[in-house]
Amino acid sequence: MNSPGLEHYLIFAALLFCIGLYGIVTRRNLIGMLMSVEIILNAAALNFVAFHRFKFGGDVAGAMFPLFIIAIAAAEAAVALAIILALFRRKRNLDVLSDNLLKN
């Protein structure tokens, strides 16, 4: 086994991303979906770091973007959870399909 290079990280990130994708699609629970989104975001951030590390070391941008992604993820999680909470108060469950949200 040679030492892990760019392609290892990229393929790993892709795999992680697809797992998150699968989770988003299959989870019926809103919190479950949110967690899948977090996985996807992490996969994306990992890509940035990998490119920064192995390809464009001179450019600091690769290290910056994960920071911003984390910040935005924090904001997103806060807002999403607030919405979920409000929704839960109203419907008493978090099932995406139980009450078709986009209908009506």
Binding site: E38, V49, R53, A63, P66, L67, I70, A74, A77
Partner: peptide, 22 residues
């Protein structure tokens, strides 16, 4: 990958913040 700062941020913000929130 030698990104110590990011690693620290990941732990503090994600594990320490977002996860607790969830």
């Amino acid at each position: 990958m030698n990104a110590q700062f990011l690693s620290a941020v990941q732990i503090t913000v994600y594990v320490g913040g977002i996860m607790v929130l969830i």
